[in-house]
Structure formats: C-alpha cells, structure tokens
C-alpha cells in the first residue's frame, strides 16, 4: 500500500505540491490527470525517493520513503518507474538493459536474470529483439523495453509518467495495450497520462491535479461523467 500524507514540496520559491493526500491500495490502478506544471511528475518522483519532500510523509508498505534510515536502493526494488523519455542504456543490448539491475542489484546469476528478462521482453512483445541495441528500436519498442526493464525487478508497484507522450501517434496504441495488460494482471499502478479514454478504461480511480493540489478524485465514471470541481470541468473541456 502507498500512503501519501499531506506532502508538500517546493522547488525554490515555487510550491509544486501543496499538501497531497492519497492512498493507493494493493491491486489498485490510479491515474493522475491535470494540466502542465500541476505537479504530477513531481509526485511520482517523490514516491520512490528520487526527489526529497519538504513536509508530510510517503509510506510504502510501512516504510517511510524519506526517513533517514530508509535504504532507498532497497525500497526502489519494489517500485518500478517508467518515464516519458524511455532512457534506454544505449551501450547495452536490449537483453542486457533488462538483466543489468536484476544481476547487480538483486545479485541474480546471469542465467536466472536472462530467463526473467526474456520472459518480460516476450511479455511486452520484444521477444525477437534480445540482442538488438536499443538505438535500433522504434520509440514504442524502446518504451516497452523500459517497461520490461522495470518489471524484471518484480516490483510490487509501477509508476508511469506520461509514457506515451513522446511517441509518434501510431506507436501509442502498442504501449497502452501493454499497460492495460499489466492492469488486468493486477499490478498496482499509478499512471500519469493525457490519454483520457485510456484513463477511463483502466482506472479504478482518477485523480485530477491542479496547481499542486489534488482537486478531485473519484471513479472514472464520476470524474469524466460528472466532474464536481470547476477546474476539472474546464480541464476536461480543454482536452476533449
């Protein structure tokens, strides 16, 4: 379970998160929508401790992420994150991209790591690209490789930050399909997305962020069908 309690975070003078409260239960799929600069990406990077917070708490399975005593490298093993930019390791093959962390972080043998990597790469439809270098892949394929790379650590949670935003339109579908598959398999996920029909499809709950505040959260039918907050209505009107 991920518990976000009154989290505040500023970059210099700019307060980006103004007291966020959100609990995500095991198996739940929560999508986060909202305008540019509303703090969506910042929240995700706070959850796995890539960014420090100013006050409040984020607790993952009972471990307080920003406590001094927390071993972040260990915590991150169970929180996978995939970014808008797919961030392949260009000097490694697709297979090596995926086996690196299981081998070095989890201490798996090469054979074990490769077995897992192959399974995950097949899962995302890249079973025939194992020895290719990622620079030879399309954006959609690189993004799916990044998803397989995160999944190879067998995380309990997956965070996705606009993973389709940098893709050519015709490649968006294949990545969304992959995400949908994960959701159906019961992965606990927080997704930031601008794909509204996708959000409506996969989410258990949808959260709307506005200027560092979670203005509204509810079932997708409610958020998209009957938004309560004025800003939610404006935002949804603007993206339709």
């Amino acid at each position: 379970m991920i518990e976000i309690q009154n989290v505040r975070k500023s970059f210099g003078q700019l307060e980006v998160l103004k007291g966020i409260d959100l609990n995500v239960a095991k198996g739940e799929v929560v999508t986060v929508i909202g305008g540019s600069g509303s703090g969506k990406s910042t929240l995700l990077t706070c959850i796995n401790g890539l960014e420090p917070i100013d006050s409040g708490k984020i607790i993952v399975d009972g471990t307080e992420v920003h406590a001094k005593s927390t071993d972040l490298n260990k915590l991150r093993q169970k929180i996978g994150i995939v970014f808008q930019q797919w961030n392949a390791f260009p000097h490694l093959t697709v297979l090596e991209n995926v086996t690196l962390a299981p081998r070095k972080v989890l201490g798996m043998s090469k054979a074990d790591a490769e077995a897992i990597a192959e399974k995950q790469l097949k899962h995302v439809g890249l079973g025939d690209k194992l020895s290719t270098h990622p620079t030879r892949l399309s954006g959609g394929q690189q993004q799916r490789m990044a998803i397989a790379r995160a999944l190879a650590m067998s995380p309990d949670y997956m965070l996705f930050d606009e993973v389709t935003s940098a893709l050519d339109p015709q490649l968006v579908g294949e990545v969304l399909e992959t995400l949908k598959m994960l959701a159906e398999e019961g992965m606990t996920m927080i997704l930031v997305t601008h794909e509204m029909s996708f959000a409506r499809d996969v989410s258990d709950r949808v959260a709307f962020f506005h200027q560092g505040i979670m203005a509204e959260i509810g079932a997708p039918e409610q958020i998209f069908g009957d938004p309560q907050h004025e800003e939610t209505q404006k935002f949804l009107a603007s993206v339709r």
Binding site: N73, N87, A101, K104
Partner: peptide
C-alpha cells in the same frame, strides 16, 4: 551522460557506485 538516464538507473535500485 543525460541526467534522465542516470535517474532511470537509480530508479531500478542501483546505487551511486553501480
């Protein structure tokens, strides 16, 4: 080396040294 690439490595649980 792009910061985002390093961030991806750290987010997989790799230490600074790794």
């Amino acid at each position: 080396v792009p910061k985002t690439t390093r961030r991806a490595a750290r987010s997989l649980g790799m230490s600074w040294g790794q």
